[in-house]
Structure formats: structure tokens, C-alpha cells
């Protein structure tokens, strides 16, 4: 069950924004970074890039804990924060994960 708070909602919004604008952003990035293009055109492309909103950049997306919404100490492979990961691992709810002992 997904835990939802304002920060998780914001992250979902950012992910959706990235999905919707990625193609266009890539095209502008290509033109802006291409050294063979005249400087005016590259500058125009860069200005266009700046018009995109905050939640269209992939860097605004942050993996958050699916069960608690926590933003730090996330194990991306499981999508869980360290506490929930530990609890679930102890309850044998994560296949292939068990407490190390030697």
C-alpha cells in the first residue's frame, strides 16, 4: 500500500512532468549543446530550456520510501527506507534477503 503525503505527491508530479516533457527537453538540449550550431541558435535553445517548469527536470525526482514516504536512507532496489527494509527483511517479506550471520 502506497503511503501518500505532500512530498510523495510532489514527487509523483515531478515524475509525470519528466515523462510529459522529456522528448522536447532532449531536443532542445541537443541543439543547445551542439557546438556545430551557430551561437544564436544554441542560445535560443538554452532560453527555451529555461522556460520549462521546475518539475520537468529529472533531477527533481527523488526516490522516496513507498511505505513511509521518507526521503533519506532509501534502498532503491526495494523502494523502502532503511527501517521498513529491516522490519520486512526480519519478517521474511523480502525474497532472498536475510540477516547476515557468520
Amino acid at each position: 500500500m502506497l503511503f501518500v503525503n505532500a512530498r510523495v505527491l510532489r514527487d509523483i508530479k515531478a515524475r509525470k512532468g519528466v515523462l510529459d516533457n522529456e522528448l522536447l527537453r532532449r531536443a532542445y538540449l541537443y541543439v543547445a549543446r551542439d557546438q556545430r550550431q551557430p551561437p544564436q541558435i544554441r542560445h535560443q535553445a538554452q532560453l527555451q530550456l529555461n522556460t520549462f517548469g521546475r518539475y520537468t527536470r529529472p533531477t527533481t525526482v527523488k526516490n522516496r520510501c513507498v511505505e513511509t514516504g521518507r526521503g533519506r536512507g532509501i534502498m532503491s532496489e526495494f523502494g523502502l527506507c532503511r527501517t521498513v527494509f529491516r522490519l520486512k527483511a526480519r519478517n521474511h517479506e523480502l525474497p532472498g534477503v536475510h540477516k547476515a550471520s557468520w
Binding site: 509525470k16 515523462l19 532532449r26 541537443y30 549543446r33 529529472p58
Partner: peptide, 17 residues
């Protein structure tokens, strides 16, 4: 720099969703 890497990279949106 030709900017080709921005075209070559996979799109990240679908997996992000």
C-alpha cells in the same frame, strides 16, 4: 561536442513512473 549523447540516452520518464 555534437550533443549526440542527449539523443543516444534512453528516455527515463517511463521507468520513473
Amino acid at each position: 561536442r555534437t550533443g549526440a549523447k542527449y539523443l543516444r540516452k534512453r528516455l527515463r520518464g517511463p521507468s520513473m513512473m
